[in-house]
Simulated assay, not measured.
Amino acid sequence: MTQSTLVDSRGSVPSPASRQRRKRPRLPQADYACAFDVLEACAGARSLPDLKEDLVEGLTASLGVRHVSFFAGATHHTVFTDPQPLTEGHTSKMLPEYQERWARHDIFGTPAATRQLVSSGVASLLELGASGSLPMSATSYVRHFLVGSWGMSSATAMKVELPGHHSALVGIFDPDEGKVGPRELATLRLLSSQLSAVSRNLPLTRTASSRIARLSERQREVALLIADGMSNAEIADTLSLAEDSVKKYVSRVLSATGCQSRMELALLVRAR
Rank of each mutant, 00 (worst) to 15 (best):
residue 2 T to P: 11
residue 3 Q to S: 14
residue 4 S to L: 14
residue 5 T to K: 11
residue 5 T to N: 10
residue 8 D to Q: 03
residue 8 D to S: 07
residue 8 D to K: 05
residue 9 S to G: 00
residue 11 G to E: 00
residue 11 G to W: 00
residue 11 G to L: 00
residue 15 S to N: 07
residue 17 A to R: 13
residue 18 S to C: 02
residue 18 S to T: 11
residue 18 S to M: 04
residue 21 R to S: 03
residue 21 R to T: 04
residue 23 K to T: 08
residue 24 R to S: 09
residue 24 R to Y: 01
residue 25 P to R: 11
residue 28 P to C: 03
residue 28 P to S: 02
residue 29 Q to F: 13
residue 34 C to G: 02
residue 35 A to G: 09
residue 35 A to M: 06
residue 37 D to W: 02
residue 37 D to A: 15
residue 39 L to K: 04
residue 39 L to A: 04
residue 43 A to Y: 03
residue 43 A to T: 07
residue 44 G to E: 14
residue 52 K to C: 14
residue 54 D to W: 11
residue 54 D to M: 14
residue 58 G to K: 06
residue 59 L to F: 07
residue 60 T to A: 14
residue 60 T to C: 15
residue 60 T to L: 13
residue 61 A to V: 11
residue 65 V to P: 04
residue 68 V to L: 10
residue 69 S to E: 09
residue 73 G to S: 11
residue 73 G to T: 12
residue 75 T to R: 15
residue 76 H to T: 02
residue 77 H to P: 00
residue 77 H to A: 11
residue 79 V to H: 04
residue 80 F to A: 15
residue 81 T to L: 12
residue 82 D to M: 02
residue 85 P to R: 06
residue 88 E to Y: 13
residue 90 H to L: 15
residue 91 T to M: 13
residue 96 P to A: 04
residue 96 P to C: 07
residue 97 E to G: 07
residue 97 E to V: 12
residue 99 Q to R: 13
residue 106 D to G: 09
residue 111 P to I: 00
residue 114 T to K: 10
residue 114 T to I: 08
residue 115 R to E: 06
residue 116 Q to R: 08
residue 117 L to E: 01
residue 118 V to K: 10
residue 124 S to P: 10
residue 125 L to D: 08
residue 128 L to D: 08
residue 133 S to D: 09
residue 133 S to Q: 12
residue 138 A to N: 00
residue 142 V to H: 05
residue 144 H to Y: 09
residue 145 F to T: 09
residue 149 S to K: 04
residue 149 S to N: 07
residue 149 S to R: 07
residue 150 W to I: 01
residue 153 S to L: 07
residue 155 A to E: 02
residue 162 L to F: 11
residue 165 H to K: 15
residue 165 H to S: 15
residue 165 H to V: 13
residue 166 H to P: 05
residue 166 H to C: 14
residue 170 V to K: 04
residue 170 V to W: 01
residue 170 V to N: 01
residue 171 G to A: 09
residue 176 D to L: 00
residue 176 D to P: 00
residue 176 D to A: 05
residue 181 G to R: 09
residue 184 E to D: 09
residue 187 T to Y: 00
residue 187 T to V: 10
residue 187 T to H: 01
residue 190 L to I: 11
residue 194 Q to L: 15
residue 195 L to N: 07
residue 196 S to K: 03
residue 196 S to D: 01
residue 197 A to Y: 05
residue 200 R to L: 13
residue 201 N to D: 15
residue 202 L to Y: 04
residue 206 R to L: 10
residue 213 A to P: 03
residue 221 E to Q: 12
residue 225 L to G: 00
residue 226 I to M: 00
residue 229 G to S: 12
residue 230 M to R: 14
residue 231 S to N: 08
residue 235 I to V: 06
residue 242 A to V: 02
residue 242 A to H: 06
residue 242 A to Y: 02
residue 244 D to R: 15
residue 244 D to C: 08
residue 245 S to N: 09
residue 246 V to P: 01
residue 248 K to W: 02
residue 250 V to K: 12
residue 250 V to A: 04
residue 251 S to W: 02
residue 252 R to S: 10
residue 254 L to F: 03
residue 258 G to S: 05
residue 259 C to T: 10
residue 263 M to S: 15
residue 264 E to L: 14
residue 265 L to T: 01
residue 266 A to R: 11
residue 267 L to C: 11
residue 270 R to V: 12
